[in-house]
């Protein structure tokens, strides 16, 4: 949540997160470079530039796989949710690694000539109509452009300016970048290295990432049992005490909406399940300090009116609730974001 924007809103968790990221990167780059040199006879190792090109390219792709795995992992197990919190730093670092890989490539392979290196990148290998001989560098360039769009728009400010929905759709471009990069690697370094490990690494990473995505979609489907509303439009949710205190029950309506029905302080309130920030699942969060708190980035909303506490001004839709004869009902018609709605009081609590 942002009151006045800062470049980066640092906190202890982010610092530790980034420290692990830096150490992991150094470990990968260090091990890759050291073993590349050690595995070759003395004096016959890669030129430092070509070594760096490979190391940074491999690091960027590895990181991209990790980034793509975190989302579904967090859906499959709550324990991974903290990894989501600072995921955008991973994304920006991934772009920077890919950029280093790309720029070194341009300088080394396409540079040192009378041609503009960027022009040379597209013309030096002319075989655009072949699969085997395809200039795979252009695929990497396209992926780098997508990653650049995502990296420069990663600040919360851009989400606000471009609109949350548009921002989200823009950032789905990551999947196209991933597909382009898989092809870039398959038609590039995999064709040149000994058969086996490089292909297996790409195929394995893809199977893991796509497997996780499909598993999380499947589990979401099982969890997504839709509830029907009765004739007067209200949805019967049974005993309100069945919802654990400070937690929510997520209701999926026939219209495809997700409502988070929270129990707190002996009361019931219902808000949209979708956080205004990154569309996180609010219903998997909790009521802390009187506010519904998103499990992803900790954005908060008052359950009674779906507004963030001052000085923040984010709003989410609310829903009407009532308890009749000990039975809890919610109305599937959403109210405008930030509409105050009286909570239903659980009798005898």
């Amino acid at each position: 949540m942002s009151h006045v924007y800062k470049a980066i809103d640092w906190n202890r968790f982010k610092r530790r997160y980034d420290l692990v990221l830096a150490l992991g990167l150094l470990a990968f780059l260090g091990a890759f470079m050291a073993l590349s040199i050690a595995a070759q006879p003395p004096g016959q190792s890669f030129t430092p530039m070509q070594l760096a090109i490979r190391a940074f390219g491999a690091a960027a792709f590895l990181l991209l796989n990790i980034i793509l795995a975190i989302g579904p992992l967090a859906r499959l197990s709550k324990r991974f949710i903290p990894l989501l919190y600072n995921r955008r730093h991973l994304g920006v670092v991934c772009f920077v690694l890919a950029l280093i890989h790309g720029v070194l490539n341009l300088l080394w392979y396409q540079g040192f000539s009378a041609l503009n290196p960027l022009v040379a990148l597209f013309v030096s290998n002319p075989r655009y109509t072949s699969i085997a001989g395809f200039p795979f560098e252009s695929l990497g360039f396209a992926a780098l452009v997508i990653l650049a769009f995502l990296a420069v728009s990663s600040h919360d400010y851009w989400q606000k300016v471009l609109g949350s929905s548009f921002w989200k759709v823009l950032h789905m471009g990551i999947y196209f970048a991933y597909a382009l990069l898989v092809l870039h690697i398959l038609l590039g370094v995999v064709q040149e290295e000994k058969p086996g490990l490089y292909f297996a690494a790409v195929a394995g990473a893809f199977l893991l990432v796509s497997g996780l995505h499909f598993a999380s979609a499947l589990i979401g489907r099982v969890r997504d049992k839709k509830v029907q509303s009765s004739l007067d439009g209200w949805i019967n949710l049974g005993d309100p005490a069945a919802i654990p205190d400070t937690r929510a029950r997520i209701v999926h309506t026939e219209e495809g909406q997700r409502i988070a029905v929270f129990r707190y302080d002996g009361k019931i309130s219902a808000v949209s399940n979708v956080c205004a920030h990154q569309n996180g699942p609010l219903g998997e969060g909790r009521v802390t300090d009187g506010c519904v708190t998103c499990p992803w980035h900790g954005w908060q909303y008052r359950p009674e009116d779906g507004r963030s506490p001052p000085p923040y001004n984010e709003m989410i839709p609310t829903y009407r609730v009532q308890i009749d004869n000990g039975i809890l009902y919610v109305h599937p018609q959403s109210l405008a974001p930030g509409t105050p709605t009286p909570p239903a009081v659980i009798e005898g609590s």
Binding site: L162, G163, V274
Partner: peptide, 18 residues
Amino acid sequence: RARQSPPKPWRRLHLRLW
């Protein structure tokens, strides 16, 4: 363009893309 469109769940689009 209205900058504040109501948030939507995007899981279905994720799945379709995959």
